[in-house]
Structures are given as C-alpha cells and as structure tokens.
Design a binder for these strands. Structure first.
Lengths: 161, 161
DNA sequence: GTTAAATGAATGAATATTCATTCATAATTT
DNA sequence: AAATTATGAATGAATATTCATTCATTTAAC
C-alpha cells in the first residue's frame, strides 16, 4: 500500500488508532460476552473471560503491543476513547462478581471498583510479561493459576471440612 | 533551563531516562527494604511494601507517569534497563512470599513467578487508574484493601472457627 | 582575564500529511 | 458492441511537522 492511501480511509494517525480499537473492541467484547454467558456459575464465567482475554491477546500480538502502550500513556488525545474500552471490560467483571456475591460463591465485603482493577491489572501484567519475554510460552495456560489466585488469594486459610 | 543544557550532563535522551531510573531506583528500593525489614510477619511486610510503593508513586507523579509509559512499551532500547528495576521489585515480593510459605501464613501450592506478577500487576493498575483519574483521591488508602484481596482473594470460603 | 557553564537558534532525520496524477473499471454514447 | 467518457480508488513525490541533538555565542564563576 502506498503512503497516502490510508488517508482516504482515516482522518489522521490517531483516527486509525481509535477506529481500529473500536472495531476490535466490538469483535472481542462479543466473544467475551458469549464466553461469559456460556458458563453458569460466576467463577466459571470469570475463568472463561480471563481465558478468552489471554487467548485474544495471544492471537493478535500487535494489538496487544499497541493496547499495552496506549492504555499506559497519559496526555494522549486518544486516551479517553481507548480507556472507554477498558471500562466495558471492567463492567463485565463487575457483573460477574455481583452474580458471585448473589449466589454466595464470592465474598460480600468487596470493594468492587478495586476488585475490577485488581483482576484487570493482574491479567494485564501477565500479558505484559508475556510480550516482553518475546511470547515464547503459552499465555492461555496462565488462566487457571490466575483464577486460583483471584478466588483463593495467597493466604493460607485452613478450610472447613 | 535551555534546550541544549541537558546535553552537557547526559549523552542523549535515553541516557536521561536510564540515569534517572537508576538514581530513583536506588533511593526507592532502599526505602522498600527498610519498610520490609521493619515488619516481622510476611503479610505485614507485604502490606508495608505495597503501602510504600503507592506512597512513593503518589509523591512523585511525574515519575509514575514515565514509569507506566516505559514499562509498557515494547521495542524501546532502554527497556531492558528499566525492566531490571521491576525485577528487583519482584525479587522482594518473592522473598516475602517464600517467608510466608515457611511460616505457614501463605499457601505452599503457589506458582511463585505468577504470584509476583499478580501482585505487581494489581498495584500497577491501581496506580494507573489513579493517574488517569487525575490523582484526585488518596492512593495509599488502597493498600489495605489490596492486601486483603491478595491474601484472601474474592472467593467466599467459609473459615474454620 | 581566563575557564567553565548555560543558552537557544539552527539542524536534520524521522515521520505525518497532502494532492496532482494515474489507471482499471463502469457507465454512456454512437 | 465498439468507442468514448466518467469515476474514484490507489499512488508516491512533495510538503509539513516534530523533535532529538548540535554548536557558535553569551553569561557567570573564579
């Protein structure tokens, strides 16, 4: 493709970014919701969500690189529009956690807006590490250990029999 | 200060970044270790570490902005040197978790290298959200709720009496 | 008065953007 | 159905912009 061709389809460089993300987001969030509704219980919903999240980022490494860079930048003009997408993700997590609280599988005393970021942050850092390691290992295999950490934490709390 | 003045003290732009980070890292990691050794139990060490982490980033917002941007960028020449610092942090976390496992306060069946990133990721995302919100609220107050999530997770596992 | 430090306009390499032109295809005319 | 005309997507050379870096000059220090 020639240099100028892209400007027939996009206003400027930022517009490419924003349009790409809103296109990709539509695609990916449909998959996410599908994956979430496939499961019945909250924990399984969360597991499916995280697994699909990792899977999509592993599938599209360039998207992962751009996403990581753009969402961790301040003072970009396109920032609000891209962060809007992260919000959609956080809303799915909220929904799942609220369901988990309702059915008793998750604690009631949770600071919900922190829980969302706690989960997204851990998944994001998992992806970030995978990117910086050159994508050598299988990212999706991190889903189950992550869910285990999210649900049970690292503390050694003896369970009831 | 005039444009050119900085080149009397630094080789180039990347050198500014690397020198700044290694200077800051020395400062901050001394504080971190001090904070960690101040506590006796592993959980309290982790709490002190996270609290100090949030405190330092809240204190130096510009550092936080640059750190977030640089650690989430691929293909930067300075990347390895900055990631080296994240590694130091991860090593402190490792140490704490291993102590926690030894004294029985943390689970033995942990995927340690994932636990490190799980904790760093959640703290990082907490900082990132604070940055994007314009730093309006108190970041340090997130430390205790975060530690609670790290230790107990979000699952509702009834405890022994 | 000599040395050292600071200045900021100038540079140029990298990259974002424009726009006159080309050309294959579609539509219209004979 | 052959010839003519219109269309608009693609091109890429030309231009605009950004930004890290330099260096001749000025200012300050001793």
């Amino acid at each position: 493709m020639a240099d100028g061709t892209i400007y027939l389809y996009f206003k400027n460089k930022d517009d490419i970014l924003v349009q790409f993300f809103s296109y990709k987001a539509k695609q990916v969030f449909d998959l996410f919701r599908e994956e979430v509704f496939r499961a019945e219980h909250a924990v399984e919903k969360l597991r499916n969500l995280v697994r699909r999240h990792l899977d999509e980022f592993q599938r599209d490494r360039n998207m992962a690189i751009v996403y990581q860079a753009e969402t961790h930048q301040n003072c970009r003009s396109v920032e609000p529009q891209i962060r809007e997408m992260a919000k959609m993700y956080l809303d799915i997590v909220s929904e799942i956690v609220e369901q988990g609280q309702a059915d008793g599988s998750m604690r009631k005393d949770l600071y919900l807006s922190l829980v969302k970021r706690f989960i997204l942050g851990a998944v994001d850092e998992t992806i970030n590490h995978w990117l910086h390691s050159g994508g050598k290992y299988d990212l999706v295999s991190m889903a189950d250990p992550l869910i285990d950490l999210f649900i049970r934490g690292i503390g050694n709390t003896p369970q009831m029999q």
